[in-house]
């Protein structure tokens, strides 16, 4: 858990985008049926406990508010390191995710634990600033010690059909990141169609993103299993092209264990066990973790739990 990520995805050429993007045909009805059929898997007993433990290790605890303070970050990091102080068998979460100005504080709090510090940059969540500002924002986060950078794609350019601009911006930000882990947020709620999600995934992957991420969490429409399915197919097709295994982060709207387990089933059956690792799959969710901890305790003790048994994050 929380292993150092050695390899990053090198940026490929724009021509690779063109090659892959032609093959973006998706039938939404068929896709929905497949996703729904995966959701009928019945995960019980040991396999459920395994899943819940995996989910904890894949969680990115997040606070992205104007009201974030040092105190808030301290609370969250403490919870990230020891999600359930009474059950030490439970691992720490994968990372904490904060704004650039709070990276150095978070970095100090995680100290030598396995928990990574991720920063949202490039003027998250809208990204509506000049490129120079996005680069500065990102550089600042990296200089402050961020292990991972979450950027947003240029939806304005994307929706205007200027895919090349979207690509070039990610390539430029990737250059700033160097070997710092780059997660690219597609904001699927803005893209709406599966074909757009597919195209944005391909652009992001070819441009060198180590992860593609569904959402900022700032929109009413966050992640969906359907969007995740489109993204995972893109990741697999990109692997077939480049040999690189990229990761996926789902964020926004994943509130309970049942839903999270359905994501894991999908990852397991469509991608295989390689992706059942925080190195390649993450959940960005703040309220999910408490429900997972409750479920773990329920499985271990047989009793349903109340939220006040678990510390605030």
């Amino acid at each position: 858990m929380g292993k150092v990520i050695n390899t990053t995805n090198p940026s490929l050429q724009w021509s690779d985008v063109l090659e892959m993007i032609n093959d973006s045909r998706i039938d939404s009805v068929g896709l929905n049926e497949r996703v729904n059929s995966l959701s009928t898997r019945s995960i019980k007993k040991d396999s459920k406990l395994d899943a819940l433990n995996m989910i904890v290790s894949m969680c990115d605890l997040t606070t992205l508010e104007g009201e974030d303070t040092e105190g808030k970050i301290s609370q969250m990091v403490a919870k990230a390191i020891k999600p359930d102080p009474l059950d030490t068998s439970i691992s720490s979460v994968a990372a904490v995710c904060v704004y650039p100005s709070l990276v150095s504080i978070a970095k100090e709090k995680v100290s030598n634990s396995n928990v990574k510090v991720a920063a949202v940059s490039s003027y998250f969540p809208s990204g509506q600033v000049p490129m120079e500002s996005k680069l500065l924002d990102t550089k600042y986060a990296i200089d402050s010690g961020a292990d991972e950078i979450d950027i947003v794609i240029n939806r304005k350019a994307f929706l205007e059909g200027d895919f090349r601009k979207v690509f070039d911006e990610i390539v430029a930000l990737k250059e700033v990141c160097n070997d710092v882990h780059l997660k690219t947020i597609l904001e699927v709620g803005d893209l709406k169609t599966y074909e757009n999600i597919r195209k944005a995934s391909i652009i992001s992957l070819v441009a060198g993103s180590d992860f593609i991420k569904t959402s900022t969490g700032k929109l009413a429409i966050g992640s969906s299993r359907q969007a995740c399915y489109v993204m995972l197919k893109s990741v697999l097709d990109y692997e077939a092209l480049s040999g690189v295994k990229a990761g996926i982060k789902v964020a926004g709207g994943i509130r309970d264990s049942k839903d999270a387990i359905r994501y894991l089933v999908m990852i397991n059956e469509e991608m295989g066990s390689d992706w059942l690792s925080p190195n390649l799959f993450r959940f960005g969710a703040s309220s999910l973790l408490d429900d997972v901890l409750k479920q773990i305790k329920k499985l271990k003790t047989g009793a349903y739990q109340a939220s006040y048994y678990f510390p605030r994050g």
Binding site: R41, S42, K44, K48, D50, A51
Partner: peptide, 10 residues
């Protein structure tokens, strides 16, 4: 990474 086996659900 783990090999995640589904328990029987009869």
């Amino acid at each position: 990474m783990i090999d995640w086996e589904y328990s029987e659900s009869i």
